[in-house]
Nucleic acid binder design. Structure first.
Length: 795
RNA sequence: GUCUAGGUGGCGAAAUUGGUAGACGCGCUACCUUGAGGUGGUAGUGGGAGUUAUCCCUUGCUGGUUCAAGUCCAGUCCUAGACACCA
């Protein structure tokens, strides 16, 4: 019997050792080595590590450890995204300070994280709640304000009644619910702190081309930004020379415009309420559409509704015809200009609306003769432009009527003000006239007041702070008042990867020199849920900083890897209510951190899919490590050539697979090697190489066995084994023999065997021979090392 | 509706990118072993036929290209995610 695998003792021993030696600290940049910046999304310190954290951190650690052993200087930092609602809610519930709650959680989670045994660069940690950190969050905000990237704007906002605060568009789910608390969002008109992400919409779209990201993530961002090219065209109204701006992707259909539609919230509706003859009816419609929840309004299976504005007409600039004006809730105030020119012959929605209200339908593009037809064609009923190709006519018509070609976007500016306590205070003060001023740098960090009752009422908690009020007056003068909103936590996480680099820098957010050392992030591992939120926000943030000369790169992340989800053993998403939550601490205690980590790596491809936790599967990996633990017993004087060959194949496979994030097949390659060497024996050298191959996956066990084998250095400081192509070459290969494309047998030959040699051997195969009898060989296809296909014809 | 992924054994999945489908692991079966509670060993394990040799079928479905298709092309049906009255 072999010795027991005492995982608890081994793990404790080496975690202590690593911590004391600081072996994984990134340290100063050593330019003799290539750099590699590996980033994982910093966790929210909820107080307990769950299995998702393990999947998010322990599996990328395999990649990190390989890169380290390959001689790269790897930066693999970790920190905490520690502002946010849960702390505030917990504090309310337990009547304690959110900071106490958060900081004790961080302390506890740091311990849990070290039980993972990751090669984290603990010397580079930071947290969003550190005054040293949010001081710079605030400073960047003041720079953005000075450069008109941050502004106070009146706008329609998403109000979450559950969180009692405004949330950004990106945080509203498709069904109109809050991303955090699942309450339905209400639209409110409010003055808000906004960031001009829309100014960067083109760059955010175009620069995706340079990134080494999976195409589907790029596509999701492009769709979210939603750039469309078209034309902006002015339509005159019959009153006061008033003009309505309209955005259209099809200016070529201008002659087919038979009416126009404004969004119910359009400014001009209120402005001319006295001229609108049926105002009562119009007002009632506006009220109804206000009541409608987003979901109803977006439901395109419902019949179109709208009201004609009696007494107002618009003039089609192409042909001078007077056309009616409607309001209808199928036109959205937040998209384009909030007004459309309606072309019922060539747009399905306009067509449905025209039929209901009995409006004229004029075909201006010849297509397949069905109406509505939204494809391209030749213009008709379009005056001098008849016969022109529709795509060519777009610019001609636009120019002719004094419009301009332009783009429109689905993306909206980012509202970042939150009516909550536990966040980065917005460093703005108002003078007695109510004008906003930034808090000057010498007063940063602009700290969070402590004398606050932060129960959510809808009003910002900071408004109740006497200390904040006094502080403001003391510094700025009587009558000055503080901004009382705090920032969206997505702001905090938009630049943390920069602060890791230089977390103790008191002069700047991160020096340009250090940024040049480490940026950009080489690989960013994270969750799919951040595709259109964090990932887009932080790209924007980086671009805004780049514009101000504060960073060296215009894109933060070179490669992105989105992982899947770990489900409960029942195949459902883990949740307390379903009772299917797997506690990683318990699993680690039972089978060890190495086992849990390897199991997570082995479940399936890291990118993409979701996998149910399977206790049997976990036991399988434990068995594997038990066998490794006893592998020394199989060491022999000299091993077979086949074993050496397999070893070198495995070296190549393991390093290639890890580099491509295919951790599952790398593990299986190690299993195949173990199966072989247990049966056939292995040399002392192969034994140590095997440990090195396994080291990224099972750092504790391999370190222990390495030291038992008499090595004095850490296995994790050794160079990853080199693959020798000559040794990896098989002496003999098995080749499949096909007759007319069907497998009929196989032959074993040298990899250099010629077609003629293989053919002779194939013909000697008794089963193959029966198919060749009485037949004529017409053609032979030989793929060296793979297959030989003999095409025969019956004589 | 649009976009993006996917559909391979009882399960998680592999497949050198057009070349022996199901590697590896789980589970299961049989036998051995252990005093024993998710952790020992050996053999087997896609379906069907056959005593063996071997044969037939098999990667959602239908066609096609090819000496050869899980892989390429066309169509079609499901599943998941994102976006959605976007002008």
């Amino acid at each position: 019997m072999h010795k027991r695998f005492e995982h608890q003792a081994i793990e404790a021993k080496w975690q202590k050792e690593w911590k004391e030696s600081g072996i994984y600290d990134a340290g100063e940049r050593d330019t003799k080595k290539e750099k590699e910046y590996v980033l994982v999304e910093w966790p929210y310190p909820s107080g307990n590590l769950h299995i998702g954290h393990w999947y998010a951190f322990a599996v990328p650690d395999i990649y990190v450890r390989l890169r380290r052993m390959q001689g790269k200087q790897v930066l693999f930092p970790i920190g905490f995204d520690a502002f946010g609602l849960p702390a505030e809610n917990a504090a309310i519930k337990r009547n304690i300070n959110p900071r106490e709650w958060t900081e004790s959680n961080i302390a506890y989670m740091k311990e849990q994280l070290s039980s993972m045994g990751n090669a984290f660069s603990w010397d580079k940690t930071t947290a969003s709640i550190d005054p040293d950190y949010f001081r710079w969050t605030q400073w960047m905000f003041t720079e953005f304000f000075k450069n008109d990237i941050a502004y106070r704007g009146e706008g329609i906002v998403n109000w979450c009644p559950g969180c009692n605060t405004v949330i950004a568009n990106e945080q509203v789910l498709a069904n109109g619910a809050c991303e955090r608390c699942d309450n339905m969002i209400e639209k409110r008109k409010m003055s808000q702190w906004m960031l001009r992400i829309t100014d960067f919409a083109d760059a955010l779209t175009d620069d995706l081309a340079e990134l080494d990201w999976p195409e589907h993530i790029k596509e999701a961002q492009r769709n979210w930004i939603g750039r469309k090219s078209g034309a902006e065209i002015d339509f005159k109204l019959s009153i006061n020379d008033e003009v309505v701006k309209v955005f259209t992707t099809r200016p070529d259909t201008l002659f087919g415009v038979t009416y126009m539609v404004l969004a119910p919230e359009h400014d001009l509706v209120q402005k001319y309420k006295n001229q609108i003859l049926n105002w009562n009816e119009v007002e009632a419609y506006i009220e109804v559409s206000k009541q409608k929840v987003e979901q109803d309004r977006l439901d395109n299976t419902k019949e179109k509704t709208g009201v004609k504005l009696e007494g107002i007409l618009a003039i089609n600039p192409a042909n001078g015809e007077r056309i009616p004006v409607f309001i209808a809730d199928y036109v959205l105030i937040s998209y384009g200009t909030g007004a459309i020119m309606a072309v019922p012959a060539h747009d399905e929605r306009d067509f449905a609306f025209a039929q209901k209200f009995d409006l004229p339908i004029v075909q201006v593009v010849s297509g397949d003769d069905t109406v509505p037809y939204s494809g391209e064609g030749q213009l008709m009923n379009s005056g001098s432009l008849n016969g022109a190709a529709s795509d060519v006519a777009r610019e001609i018509i636009t120019e002719k009527v004094g419009g301009r070609m332009t783009n429109t976007y689905r993306l909206r500016d980012w509202s970042i003000g939150r009516q909550r306590y536990w966040g980065t205070p917005i460093p703005i003060v108002y003078d007695p006239e109510g004008k906003a001023h930034v808090v000057p740098e010498q007063h940063l960090p602009w700290s969070l007041p402590e004398d606050v009752d932060f129960k959510p009422t809808g009003e910002a908690p900071l408004a109740k702070s006497q200390e904040l009020k006094e502080r403001t007056e003391k510094i700025f003068g009587a009558g000055w008042t503080p901004e009382v909103e705090t920032m969206d936590t997505f702001v905090d996480s938009s630049w943390y990867f920069l602060r890791y680099l230089d977390s103790k820098n008191a002069e700047s957010l991160a020096s340009l020199a250090v940024q040049k050392d480490w940026m950009p992030v080489d690989t960013y591992f994270g969750g799919a849920e951040h595709t259109t939120m964090h990932l887009l926000y932080s790209r924007f943030w980086q671009k805004a900083l780049f514009k101000l000369g504060l960073v060296a790169d215009k894109e933060p992340y070179r490669r992105r890897v989105n992982r899947g989800l770990i489900l409960g053993p029942d195949g459902n998403k883990m949740s307390k209510s379903k009772g299917n939550v797997v506690d990683p601490d318990a699993q680690v205690k039972l089978v060890g951190a190495d086992t849990v980590k390897m199991y997570l790596a082995f479940m399936g491809p890291y990118q993409g899919a979701n996998y149910p936790w399977d206790l049997g599967g976990l036991a399988g990996l434990r068995r594997f490590l038990e066998r490794v633990n006893g592998l020394m017993e199989h060491v022999v004087e000299s091993e077979s050539k086949a074993t050496t060959t397999l070893l070198h194949k495995t070296i190549k496979k393991v390093s290639d697979d890890i580099e491509n994030y295919k951790f599952n097949t790398a593990v299986s390659a190690l299993m195949i090697l173990l199966n072989q060497v247990e049966k056939e024996g292995l040399s002392k050298n192969t034994y140590t190489v095997f440990l090195q191959l396994l080291a990224p996956f099972a750092p504790h066990l391999t370190e222990e066995l390495w030291s038992e084998a008499g090595q004095s250095d850490s296995i994790h400081a050794t160079e990853f084994p080199a693959y020798d192509a000559a040794l990896a070459k098989d002496e003999m290969v098995t080749i499949g023999v096909q007759i007319n494309g069907k497998m009929r047998g196989d032959v074993t030959v040298s990899p250099e065997a010629t077609e003629a040699e293989v053919l002779v051997l194939a013909q000697e195969n008794t089963n193959v021979a029966t198919y060749l009898e009485g037949a004529e060989v017409v053609k032979v296809i030989y793929v060296p090392g793979r297959i030989i296909n003999i095409i025969v014809q019956l004589r």
